[in-house]
Nucleic acid binder design. Structure first.
Length: 743
DNA sequence: TGTAGGCAAAATCCATGCGACGT
DNA sequence: ACGTCGCATGGATTTTGCCT
């Protein structure tokens, strides 16, 4: 049997076939077609026959661990066939709402971003690429980790907006920068020739991966529209196809992976603003000092075109470099979930987990896949949070459970089969679907980690295996949350509640034991306990946890000094290795001004490193004085808040919603999910009446008192009040103020 | 196209009460 | 004496973004 081995790039539904795009062993780009008829499962009610479809097989499947005799029914349109069967009362239907290409991957075990072997023969060409027609089966080729050499191209367009944000119905594309990993170029000239050159470039370079920053949200749609208006056929896909909208706002480009690296921001909580500069900086890349902001592009195009073009080329390069840094991770996620690489970052966590579970269900557990339906959201009790002992503490150890919830799920076999609706847990049953699926992930992760360690440092294998390990961990950690998600196919709030209940029970027993051993318990949250750093007693505690609870806890870090306020989930400490850790406080929040955050960090530094309350107070007062005198750059006054819904949907008048509304009226493209930056200016009325888009404000308009009192003083007082300093000492004009006099 | 709940904090909203004022 | 207007006050609600 002739075989073709290829690395799977993309899957597309054809006429009665599924077309697999891949890179063959020799480096040839190929398309392999399989005839494929979708199917679903019917658990027939008694007496129901086989009158439901043309092709029917009898198979054994499981529903929540119970074996069932099922009919596997083949149909072009499984959703319609299943609905028909349901309407006729023939039984319960499963797995009928999967998309064809997804079902194909699930049923064959193929994974995008991995190698495959197909029995297939050469069948001429399809759209100019060597085509193969399946003659037999196709299977995943296990054990081969490294991706082939992929051709990657990144691009960055520049639009010339007449007013505010560029609009595709009005404002032209004036440049597109391209980067192929070694050389940059920028297409300029009249718009038509830019677009034609872009299409031409992609046809010649024929990349497997097209990388952009915000391609899905903005560029593909923008460029498509401009091309249509200019009469340019926008054939950027393989075989000359045009981009088309795919599931949930993602854009598909046939035969290529369309990767929008801006979506990686979701995976990096440290990056608070979805800007290329922020992400690039986080990734350790060099960022131009004077990166222009959106609102400056128009002026720059007139005043310093060369600078703008060089910035645009930087953007294209940065996007590709980010892709290079994350590609192993992306392809690993793709291989684990079975989702195409360009969907993996777009898809929300729950869908990634679910895709993994569906594959596991069909291929290993032979569990039926329940259809997606809207369930009423049920809330349940979560983790336990201790009231901290406020004030400054010295020498504190932080003990952490190693992945507590996954451990609980496996150890107590918590699953849909074993946890009853009333919360009771059935013991002695064989391992449930969730623990099995989870254990498989953890086993694979352990294997990836040990294989990585055996691979030579700096090798491709090691890099790929480490990325795989991270991807597996991410999916494993999300399984608990998935059970409590009302959109899940395997929605199981009672299981989620059982998991957290066990967690609370465990942490409570650890706290009691710690106290019994004479350790001071200062704070705790869900799966962590902060105790006085007594090595002998801690050792004893860890031993007890291991032998009595069968779970692993480790000393995560030791704080030389740590400060707690009255509030839960907010503290700061200096660790044994000299780092300042700030948790939950204003300094780590994205919705406080830079000046308040910096002042707070400095006060913490003085307090925790120098141990001087007086000097910390003085530092706070200096900042407040400075702000009141207006000696702070405007960019440190910007407050960013996310627009979480359309501005008109807000029940309370929120400053950022008002600003967003005004910006929209002025022609800015502010979308739900965007962060809105504003500055508070002087004048009468509420904050929302005095908030302005940050780029419109000048220093003489700023309400410096607002920043002094409500930002800097508030953030500093939060810290100092924990060591007995009253906020009035910060606000008094100088020395001891009237407050001190009147008590 | 939404893993979960627990939590703090700010700004706004809203009911209430009080004093000033006009009739 | 009575109505109401403006304003302060304090509790409830809305909103965001953090923690684990």
């Amino acid at each position: 049997m002739p075989e073709v081995r290829f690395w799977l790039l993309d899957v597309a539904s054809g006429e009665g076939t599924v077309d697999l795009w891949g890179v063959a062993e020799g480096g040839e780009r190929v398309v392999v077609s399989f005839p494929f008829m979708p199917y679903f499962y019917l658990v027939p009610s008694r007496g129901a026959g086989r009158e439901v479809g043309a092709r029917v097989e009898e198979v054994e499947r499981f529903r929540l661990g119970r074996p069932l005799r099922c009919l596997r029914i083949y149909a072009d349109d499984t959703a319609r066939a299943a609905e028909d069967a349901l309407r006729r009362g023939l039984g319960d239907a499963y797995g009928y709402d999967l998309r064809r290409a997804d079902l194909f991957l699930i049923s064959t075990g193929l994974r995008p971003g991995s190698w495959a072997v197909a029995e297939a023969e050469r069948a001429g060409e399809l759209w100019g690429y060597p085509a193969y027609r399946a003659t037999g089966s196709v299977r995943a080729e296990e054990g081969r980790v490294a991706a082939p050499d992929l051709r990657v191209v990144s691009f960055n367009p520049t639009y010339l907006a007449r007013r505010a944000s560029p609009r595709p119905d009005r404002d032209p594309v004036v440049a597109i920068s391209l980067y192929d990993g070694s050389s940059s170029r920028t297409l300029i000239g009249d718009e038509r020739s830019i677009l034609e050159s872009f299409v031409d470039y992609l046809a010649r370079a024929d990349p497997d991966v097209v990388v952009s920053f915000q391609g899905n949200r903005v560029h593909w749609d923008y460029l498509s529209r401009r091309a249509r208006a200019a009469g340019v056929r926008f054939s950027v896909g393989r075989g000359g196809s045009e981009p088309h909208g795919s599931v949930y706002g993602h854009v598909s480009i046939r035969g290529r992976v369309n990767l929008d690296v801006s979506e990686f921001v979701e995976e990096v909580p440290e990056v608070k603003l979805e800007r290329l500069e922020e992400l690039a900086r986080y990734m350790g890349m060099s960022v131009p000092e004077e990166a222009p902001e959106d609102y400056e592009v128009g002026d720059l195009w007139e005043s310093d075109r060369a600078a703008l073009i060089s910035y645009s080329e930087w953007r294209a390069r940065a996007a590709l470099e980010i892709f290079s840094a994350i590609s192993d991770y992306v392809f690993s996620l793709s291989a684990i979930t079975g989702m195409p690489p360009d969907h993996v970052l777009t898809a929300a966590t729950g869908f990634k987990v679910e895709n993994y579970l569906m594959r596991f269900a069909e291929l290993e557990a032979r569990e039926l896949i329940p259809p997606r339906r809207e369930s009423a959201h049920m809330t349940y009790q979560g983790g336990m949070v201790l009231q901290p002992e406020p004030g400054l503490h010295h020498d504190v150890a932080v003990l952490d459970f190693k992945s507590m919830y996954p451990s609980i799920i496996i150890k107590y076999n918590l699953s849909l089969e074993t946890v009853h609706e009333d919360g009771t847990i059935e013991e002695g049953r064989e391992q449930g679907f969730l623990p099995r699926a989870l254990e498989r992930l953890l086993e694979e992760r352990a294997r990836a980690r040990s294989e990585a360690e055996r691979s030579p440092e700096g090798s491709t294998e090691r890099r790929v295996l480490e990325a795989k390990q991270r991807a597996l961990k991410r999916i494993a950690n999300a399984i608990y949350g998935y059970t409590g998600w009302s959109g899940a196919r395997w929605y199981a709030p009672h299981v989620a509640a059982a998991i957290t209940a066990k967690g609370r029970e465990i942490i409570s027993s650890v706290i009691s034991k710690a106290r019994g051993l004479g350790l001071r318990v200062i704070y705790g949250d869900t799966d962590s306990v902060f105790v006085s750093n007594d090595a002998r007693k801690i050792d004893e505690l860890l031993g007890w946890i291991s032998s009595e609870l069968g779970l692993e806890v480790k000393v995560e870090k030791v704080y030389v000094n740590v400060l707690f306020t009255e509030a839960k989930k907010r503290y700061a400490g200096v660790t044994a290795d000299g780092r300042l850790d700030v948790v939950g406080l204003e300094a780590v929040r994205g919705d406080w001004s830079g000046v308040a955050k910096r002042a707070q960090v400095e006060v913490l530094e003085v307090l925790l490193r120098e141990g001087s309350v007086e000097r910390a107070v003085e530092r706070a007062r200096e900042w407040i004085r400075r702000v009141r005198s207006g000696d702070v750059p405007l960019r440190d006054l910007v407050i960013w808040k996310q627009l979480t819904k359309p501005p008109e949907d807000y029940e309370a008048t929120a400053a950022h919603a008002i600003v967003a509304k005004r910006m929209r009226e002025a022609g800015w493209d502010v979308r739900v999910g965007d962060k809105v930056g504003f500055v508070v200016v002087r004048g009468p009325g509420r904050i929302y009446e005095r908030a302005r888009p940050y780029f419109e404000v000048t220093g003489d308009q700023v309400d410096w008192d607002y920043y002094a009192d409500k930002q800097v003083a508030a953030a500093c007082a939060r810290i100092l009040e924990a060591v007995g300093v009253d906020e009035s000492r910060l606000l008094a004009a100088g020395g001891r103020g009237l407050e001190a006099f009147f008590g």
